[in-house]
Amino acid sequence: MFLRICMILLLMVSPVYVYGAEVYVQSLKAPILAEPKMGSKEVATARRGDALEILEKTQGWYRVKYKDVAGWVWKLLVDTGPPKGKVSILEETDQKLEEGARRRASAYVTAAAARGFMEERSRLNTLYWLNFDDLEWLEKIKVEDERALRFLEED
């Protein structure tokens, strides 16, 4: 009885091993290579969203299991958690953004005034200019990901 309790306690507090953890491919495709070198032979190609089981970790590379193949994948192409959709703040209407900016600005003004920074800030404002107009021009140029991929594959 005592033995059983001890075993259960031990198991309950056993360390959770890192290995056996999974990562997901974030980039469009992630080559699984024979060695942790970008120029080595490609043994498989994983696609965005595929799950890879980590077997080993070294600087900048993971040795993983993909389907029935083991190989190395570049660390920056994967992450814990499946790939997320695009995060954008431009979904909010212009008006909302404006309000937000005003709200933020006024909250800042209160804080700054309270800390006596008002004068310094208005001096800085004449030193540089926030050019949101050009930024908005740039953001209006829409290029879809698929079209970009095709462009890359041309030729």
Binding site: Q26, S27, L28, L76, V143, D145, F151
Partner: peptide
């Protein structure tokens, strides 16, 4: 943008809209 966004597909941050 065509080149840049194409390249970005092969990088690991699909949630970012590059410009």
């Amino acid at each position: 943008n065509l080149i840049g966004k194409g390249l970005a597909q092969y990088a690991g941050r699909p949630e970012i809209e590059f410009h």
